[in-house]
Nucleic acid binder design. Sequence first.
DNA 1: GTGTGTCAAGCAGAG
DNA 2: CTCTGCTTGACACAC
Length: 328
Amino acid sequence: MKIGYPCVNEAMDCSAASTFRLASYSEERLVAAVAANLACLRRLLEWNVSQGLYFFRMGSGIVPFGSHEINAYPWQTHFGPEFRALGEYIKQQELRVSFHPDQFVVLNSPDPGIVRRSIDELVYQGSMLDLMGLDGTAKLQIHVGGLYGDRELALSRFAAVHAALPAAVRARVVVENDDRLFSLRDCLHLHERTGVPILFDNFHHECLHHGEPMAGALRLAAATWHPVADGVPMMDYSSQAPAERRGKHTPSLVEELFRNFVTELHGLDFDIMFEIKDKEASALRALAVLRELSLAGPAPTGPVPPLALPPGAGASAKAKGAKALKAP
DNA sequence: GTGTGTCAAGCAGAG
DNA sequence: CTCTGCTTGACACAC
């Protein structure tokens, strides 16, 4: 069981998503941004390892405009060694990584242009995992897409596009049950038709379900992952923010709810991503809970990389020193 | 420096 | 019709 958080470390003084406006695109800016993002990503992963957080969702913005036609620069070859080195570190430390392409990736859109751009984005993000030399257990997590007034038709379009994906992308794509449109049951139908693994989101399941108890739902989702080709099933964990709109993620881990949730696993192994507002802070608290229950290994004893670079170091990192010093 | 409108991209539902 | 939320944060320009 690996524990992680998505994209951003709130205490770190660098961002792995530095970018710029499309209007100010230049190859110089692109190269500078990618170099800074990869350097920050390395520091992030090292910090995660030092804390025992072995699961991480990388952000979509490592290569700005990575699937946009304006970006004709051969970043794959220019940064090949950097991607390879990151992949070596990930494999050596036995980290699990993934991407979650954003809401613009809609494989079941009736608009062929949207489908094409969606596939381009999956190819871009998948190619980063390929460049890292990672196997099919490093996943691309997406939602089914839109409803367009006809659930069956919408699912059929997803299945058709999925079958036509480049094989390297299809091997990585997993679908997540969402909180309003496509439930675990819908995803299970898709799995039967396409073989796509289901990334289970416990909170979305609480928002949208057909009466399946949590323990059974976890078992059903886990069974859609091939133990070797797909690896340990991934899941997203969150809970309802108190006194907020239904479906809003909690600002911080509610340990009692998480303890209750863990009892529903009944020994099932999952790699768990904590989609919680305060990011690594809640992931660390969850890890502590799991250690109490002997479900996670002991705390690492190695050196802890600094959250902030020393003055003068790291010219590529933006001057954001104040962020690392901000009050809790 | 600090404040703030806006940023490549889609969809559904609330107000 | 417009605004919001979704993993959201960060750029860019005004002051």
